[in-house]
Amino acid sequence: MRSSYRARLIGISVLAILAAVAILFYGNPAPAGSRGYWTIVESRMVSVGTILIVAFCHGVGTVVFHAVTNNRILTPSILGFDALYRVIQTGLVFFFGAGAVAASDGLLKVVVQSVLMVAFATLLYGWLFSGTHASLHVLLLVGVVLGMGFSSLSTFMQRLLTPSEFDILTARLFGHISVSNVAYLPWGALVCVIVGAILWRRRHVLDVVSLGRETAISLGVAYRREVVIALVLVAVLISVSTSLVGPMTFLGFVVALLTYQIVGSSEHTRTLPMAAAVGASTLLIAYFILRHLFYAAGLINVIIELVGGLVFLGYLLRKGLR
């Protein structure tokens, strides 16, 4: 079983590498070896880097999220993350105008946005877990309600925008891998490496936490503390990805589902690396097919969300809310 796991992990990683190489070199219009050729390869490398970060964040983040919330349906987006991103973006355009927003693009804005989102998550978890009725269901319910509140707020502000401002805003609210911020990539990668290392060190604790509160406490794990740490780390990952390419609701769900299917068991020693590999290969292959075979780069998020949403619905109908 161990060897078959290793073979699968290697196989999927090789797929990801092949897809990455294909994205970099397939159909380059400039003559091979010329300066233009390498410029194009370089710009494509930014896309590949972005995809790797986004896939890692959503794949690993969702697997960890599933472990601590003891379910396989909910994704971090349900904690109001996507909605928070939308309300921040809409608020920026609403209060400062489209011109100011376009001018302020850069590392600072991304950092501020990430910090805001993590702070929001930490406050929410901190508050909810310090109360007497600290339960995960309450937390999730509050997440859903806050998410709805944020969405309504965004919709309200969007109604008051001029059509041109609304147009600029809409372009920002859909994720776009091709136009992610280059300056931000190394930082995003660094955060991923750090968070990944912390999670990897805690992988056995995550196994215990996924057995539920009572068993975890009986096994000597400080359950509440571990859950909060894990959720904050997930918040960091998702906010990195969201700041980079915008909201992706179903990507994490699809990657996690595939990971569980491929690995079979739930040990995090196996699911964490596999989630990263599966995430990378899924997103790289999807990007290659859509961008280089169908020339539909702008549609990538829409199609991932469409496919992911359908899989999500199918899963719900087949397995129920468990």
Partner: peptide, 21 residues
């Protein structure tokens, strides 16, 4: 809690978790 877990173990009746082990 860690030291206690070497002395005392408790098993409740409901053990629902989705982890596949």
């Amino acid at each position: 809690s860690r030291e206690l877990a070497k002395k005392l173990a408790i098993l409740r009746q409901e053990n629902h978790f989705v982890a596949r082990l």
